[in-house]
Write a protein that binds this DNA or RNA. Structure first.
Length: 136
DNA sequence: CACGTGACAACTC
DNA sequence: AGAGTTGCCACGT
């Protein structure tokens, strides 16, 4: 590891953090009015599966993490064991200006998050992944 | 579009 | 210390 990388790691609060903590940190990077998928978060983290992202969110009991901005690859909010949270999720997204199309789907071409800044990615040793539904 | 299949950290005894 | 339980998915066919 280069000295520069060591310095970066020393300043990284995520260094040594659990997988869940890193997942939460990525989700905190999603700006209001944008959405990301479970697979996208997993790809950015680099060492976990999309399902792990769902597990992490299920275990989440903290304010300050915009969990409502994480949806499934179909562009829909996932049904959960609790059941009631999905309505809250849709409401909070609508309050952020996210439009739901017919059938309760979100258009990735309009609201799909393209990932964190490159320097944030480099700073935390994560990975850049293409946004879902992005035209290229 | 509706299936079946793949794969895993954190928490609690 | 270690086994068991718990959990908001993506992709290919």
């Amino acid at each position: 590891m280069s000295p520069e990388a060591q310095e970066t790691a020393k300043n990284d609060p995520l260094c040594g953090a659990s997988v869940y903590e890193r997942i939460y940190a990525i989700i905190c990077q999603i700006p209001p009015g944008w959405v990301a998928t479970y697979g996208q978060i997993a790809g950015i983290e680099g060492h976990c599966t999309p399902r792990m992202v769902g597990y992490a969110l299920a275990a989440l009991n903290a304010e300050g993490v915009p969990w409502q901005r994480v949806i499934n690859s179909a562009g829909r909010v996932s049904e959960r064991s609790g059941g009631g949270g999905t309505a809250t999720q849709r409401l909070r997204l609508m309050e952020e200006g996210v439009q739901f199309s017919r059938g309760g789907r979100i258009d990735f071409e309009s609201y799909g998050w393209s990932g964190p800044d490159w320097e944030w990615i480099r700073m935390h040793g994560m990975y850049a992944v293409p946004a879902p539904g992005q035209r290229g």
